[in-house]
Nucleic acid binder design. Structure first.
Lengths: 154, 154
DNA sequence: GTGTCTAGCTGAACCATATTCGGTATTGTA
DNA sequence: TACAATACCGAATATGGTTCAGCTAGACAC
């Protein structure tokens, strides 16, 4: 874990909300010059705290109306690492986690229509190592993509 | 749903991967001038396709070691919309969806430690309207935050 | 105490890029 | 044909990213 002070945490919060803020603007908010903010941000990138700069796209606006969480049970001889590369070939699958409990793998997926979700499920079930899937369809999303709050140093 | 042509989709893909690309660089990749790309991007922002510019932070690097999905069952007289504002008060909760099936609400949460997750679960259980929770702890994440592929126009 | 090193900051200068603008080609429509 | 709307281009301008030299404070050795 990377050591972060109060100012680093404030910068990360601001950039998670709006990464296009100018360094001068961030500096005004956290009490530093633009150059100092620049320095800190570059350091955070180098240390891997900032992984990427991205846009957040509205899924519905680009035709992805359906969101679902797909719980996958694997056969005993298969691991999440075995099947993940295959799941990565399905562009509908946005996330892939190995999980503890009743479930072995948890996927988050988005499709244009319920029919497309059905087709995706069939493809997933056919992946070698997959034993069973249980899907939870999202009816509405209250919030998503909220900023992560950095943990205070101990 | 917003109508997007092939170039819009290409621009959205590039920006989801790396939103700091210059308009000139994007233009070179999609076959347009910088000014034309600028035009299209502003239009995508205005139409709500691009919701925000954000940084992607490595949760582990900022001390968030634990990720969990929390399935919430509500009492019959409660709705997801009722409880969501309270969940929004918990900064550990990153996503909140209303779901169909066995479950009423699905949360994604991140905490520093398993103990913190335990405390969060207690707080969630105490929210009025919540009947039961079932948690799935993530052991490892294969991938996350993949770009959404815009649906082709019909 | 003095000297030295380092980390982190500042303001200024410079340069890349975002943004604006005027003009042109294309398409659809009356 | 004329007209309007759209999407594009290159050039000019404005903004902000990036670099740099120098300053300060703190840690450390002597």
């Amino acid at each position: 874990m990377v050591q972060l002070d109060t100012i680093d945490r404030a910068i990360l919060l601001e950039l998670q909300k709006e990464s296009r803020l100018s360094y001068a603007e961030i500096g005004a908010r956290v009490g530093l010059s633009a150059a100092a903010v620049h320095d800190r941000v570059k350091k955070l990138e180098r240390k891997g705290v900032i992984e990427a700069y991205r846009i957040q796209v509205n899924p519905k606006a680009i035709g992805l109306q359906v969101t679902a969480f797909i719980a996958v049970r694997l056969q005993n001889d298969a691991t999440c690492a075995d099947v993940a590369p295959t799941f990565a070939d399905f562009p509908e699958v946005e996330e892939c986690h190995s999980a503890a409990g009743d479930i072995d793998v948890l996927l988050k997926a988005r499709t244009a229509t319920p029919e497309d979700l059905e087709k995706l499920l069939y493809r997933i079930k056919r992946v070698p190592g997959v034993s069973r899937t249980t899907s939870t369809v999202v009816l509405s999303t209250q919030f998503e993509a909220r900023p992560l709050i950095p943990v205070e140093a101990e």
